[in-house]
Design a protein around this nucleic acid. Structure first.
Length: 364
DNA sequence: AACACGTGGAT
DNA sequence: TATCCAAGTGT
């Protein structure tokens, strides 16, 4: 705490702001969410960019704004379409929270995104980073927007050795930003910090010789830029074995199941599946028994057509894929239905589903 | 505080 | 191949 205060004194804040912002104005990327400062579009882009690369986000952002051009359009959209717009982006709770928050803004804020830290922070999915990003970029409010880039860049410039993997560390950087942010151009300043982190001050091999604020950088001065930031590593992921089944009815439709509204891949559709706690001793008849226990359905597994691995951030799915049949008297409801291949376009599925579908098509 | 929560790309 | 990510938030 005392440490970074002292380091901030070592630099000329005014000159640092000028060097950083003029670089940003000259070198910033031409990105679709930078065409205007519509708070709604800034909001959508910031949610999409959470833990997600710019190159990945661009096509999703363009299509999302085509489908839902305004707050009112998104507020009135049905969830299936909204999830479909997010299909493949990951962290699906982001878009369910965004949908919920946009409905809130449409209903209780006259369709105007709130412009105060207190109000905007009450919106679902808007945490400290996103609040600061929207307030500064869309409204010019000098609030910190501390993401991974900002922590990396400032840890180097200000020689901050705290572990950025610790939740409490974000406050240290917010405090630092409050002391160096430009009150004339908070939008350009915050975006410049992130842009610098993305283009120059990268994690492994920063391009210090091209850096517009190299002269202000304590880490460069000390030759320790690649030692920062300090970030402890996370635990390894656990592995889960699953058996999934593709069932077709007499007209050739495939059976899908809607996942629970909370937790992993919430509200997305998938092929019926069960967890295999003893994967090496499970045979088709026993797995059929698991389906009966889990869903009270009489499913017969006819043939294993292969297996896929799907890696999440925190776990690994090893999925055995079967084809099979189900009793004719099976009833459809909100969670279970048969759909045509064309109707896949009207439902949102995780990437693992598409991997299985591809395997099935190759088998057929 | 620690962990759940996705995905595809970089090294 | 293994690991670490990339503009974090909710619980």
């Amino acid at each position: 705490m005392v440490n970074e205060l002292k380091n901030i004194e070592k630099i000329s804040i005014k000159k640092f702001q000028e060097d950083l912002i003029s670089w940003f104005k000259a070198e910033q990327r031409d990105l679709p969410w930078r065409k205007d400062q519509d708070p709604y579009k800034v909001w959508v882009s910031e949610i999409m960019l959470q833990q997600t690369r710019v190159d990945t986000v661009i096509p999703y952002f363009n299509r999302f704004i085509e489908w839902f051009p305004t707050i009112e359009d998104l507020a009135n959209a049905n969830e299936e379409k909204v999830l479909k717009a997010w299909e493949g982006l990951g962290y699906y709770s982001r878009v369910r929270n965004l949908h919920s928050a946009v409905k809130e803004v449409n209903a209780n804020y006259g369709g105007q995104v709130p412009d105060t830290p207190k109000e905007i922070s009450t919106l679902k999915g808007v945490g400290p980073y996103t609040a600061g990003a929207i307030l500064s970029i869309a409204y010019g409010v000098p609030e910190p927007a501390v993401d991974g880039n900002v922590m990396r860049v400032l840890s180097r410039i200000l020689l901050i050795w705290e572990d950025i993997a610790k939740p409490s560390t974000r406050k240290v950087f917010e405090n630092a930003v409050r002391q160096v942010i430009s009150h004339d151009e908070p939008s350009a300043f915050n975006q410049a910090l992130m842009e610098l982190g993305a283009l120059i001050c990268t994690p492994t091999s920063p391009s210090c010789l091209l850096c517009p604020v190299r002269d202000h950088c304590q880490a460069f001065h000390e030759g320790v830029e690649t030692k920062l930031p300090i970030k402890t590593k996370k635990n390894s992921q656990r592995s889960v074995d699953l058996a999934a089944i593709i069932v077709k009815d007499e007209s050739g439709k495939i059976l899908i199941h809607k996942r629970p509204e909370n937790g992993l891949l919430a509200n997305l559709w998938e092929f019926p599946n069960v967890e295999l706690h003893q994967p090496f001793v499970m045979e088709r008849a026993q797995i059929s028994g698991l389906f009966r226990e889990s869903f009270d359905m009489n499913i017969k597994l006819e043939k294993n057509i292969g297996q896929i691995e799907h890696i999440f951030s925190h776990l690994v799915w090893n999925i055995r894929l079967y084809i099979g049949t189900i009793d004719a008297e099976f009833l459809e409801n909100d969670e279970w239905k048969f759909i045509t291949l064309d109707e896949i376009e009207e439902h949102a599925f995780p990437v693992s589903f598409h991997k299985m579908l591809k395997l099935y098509k190759e088998y057929s």
